[in-house]
Simulated scan of single mutants.
Amino acid sequence: MLSEQSAATVRATLPVVGAAIGEITERFYAGLFAAHPELLRDLFNRGNQAAGTQRQALAGSIAAFATYLVDHPDQRPDAMLGRIAHKHASLGVAPEQYAVVHEHLFAAIAEVLGEAVTPEVAAAWDEVYWLMANALIAIEKRLYEESGSRGWREWEVVERVPETADVMTFRLRPVDGGPVRDFRAGQYVSVGVKLPDGARQIRQYSLSGAPGTTVRQISVKAVRGDAAPGGEVSHHLHARVQVGEVLQLSEPYGDLVLDDVTDTPLLLASAGIGVTPMVAMLAQLAETGHSAPVTVVHGDRSPADHALRADHEAYAAKLPDAAAHFWYEEQAPEEGRSGLVDLGGIAVPEGTRAYLCGPLPFMRAVRTQLIGKGVAPADIHYEVFGPDLWLASRG
């Protein structure tokens, strides 16, 4: 993977680059958007940019990748790369865009580190960048080939279903009436919307309906707080997108899917809107008649905030050996549990494979509890959206 000479240089300069990586990424994005304002308007998440979380994510992914190459010179972090590639593919990222990123990233490195960027240092970090970029380009090429498309398709909203006070389910059909490629339970789509200021913003939403239909179903939580820019897309969907409106959707992507689980005990853990891929997984398990034990775990603020709860319970009830456990921080009913998710009293069968989706602190806590119960770390799988993506990919 990384040449010996470059590995030695990266190892020696990693502390310096790591200490400055926040400033480097800040200047990188400033230069990138000054040269290509259309990227901020039409591709990058303006909410994450305004909050600074996208800069932190880029800094973290670069540092994590470089550290992995130095510590494991004959390997590469495929889990992290795979997650990022699925996200990029859902956005329609093209190979030529990596050269644009390279130009502005290395200009920022030179600007911040100055004379410390010798030709040897520049060459070493250039090698790191293109190892990561070329790996992503190759994975994304395969994903595009498998999906049969790198473009966008227009889908008409045929139904809006209020799930809770701040979660709305949208059901959509393709405007062209053509065939629909099936998806795998747990996958997501990118949704592109045209906002009132003319920007085209994109967000990812898990497919919350059952596979095997021509209808795409997404369940969108309106982000609380200031609607611009943090929750501008979710608020736009809730307030403005009615039946008959048309949205742009990508093909389904995401690698948190059920593979070869016929005889495998499963644990599906979610919190908040993280319930969406888990409901799709339960629908698939119910359809295929999964007979091994399934443990369903969910945490939420209250029963009224538990989106898709009826489906959550109904699909679990269709399975011959399933148990559902719900925790609520407020107003816990008799059938629920009060407080945060706690697996202390939950039996986890030997050989369980776990799938988690929710806020990163929730998943870290559940992962720790599962490991404590003997679940192998390799059998604990995540789904994370937004700039925390790379963090979960390391686990």
Rank of each mutant, 00 (worst) to 15 (best):
L2V: 14
A8V: 07
V17H: 01
I21R: 02
T25A: 14
A30H: 07
A30E: 15
L32Y: 06
F33R: 03
L39D: 06
F44I: 02
F44V: 01
A50K: 04
G52A: 12
R55V: 05
G60I: 08
S61L: 14
A64Q: 10
P73G: 11
Q75D: 15
R76D: 13
A79N: 15
R83W: 12
A85Q: 04
K87V: 03
Y98W: 11
A99T: 08
F106C: 04
E111H: 14
A116C: 05
D126G: 15
Y129I: 06
W130E: 05
A138V: 13
I139L: 15
I139P: 00
K141D: 13
E145V: 08
V157K: 05
V157G: 02
E159S: 07
V167M: 04
R173S: 01
V175C: 05
D182K: 09
G186T: 07
Q187T: 10
K194Y: 08
L195K: 01
G198A: 10
S206N: 09
S208P: 03
G209T: 07
G209A: 14
A210G: 04
V215S: 01
I218R: 00
S219R: 01
K221Y: 10
V223S: 02
A228T: 12
G231T: 09
G231V: 08
H238V: 12
Q242I: 02
Q242G: 00
V243N: 05
G244A: 05
V246E: 09
L249G: 06
L256D: 00
V257M: 07
D260L: 12
L267S: 00
G274Y: 04
V279L: 09
A286M: 07
E287A: 15
V297P: 00
G299H: 08
R301L: 15
R301I: 13
R301P: 00
D305S: 13
A317S: 14
K318R: 15
A323P: 01
Q331D: 15
P333F: 11
G336T: 02
G339D: 12
V341T: 11
P349S: 07
L360S: 00
M363P: 03
T368E: 13
G374V: 05
V375F: 12
A376M: 09
I380G: 03
Y382A: 09
Y382K: 00
E383R: 04
G386N: 05
G386F: 10
P387D: 08
G395S: 07
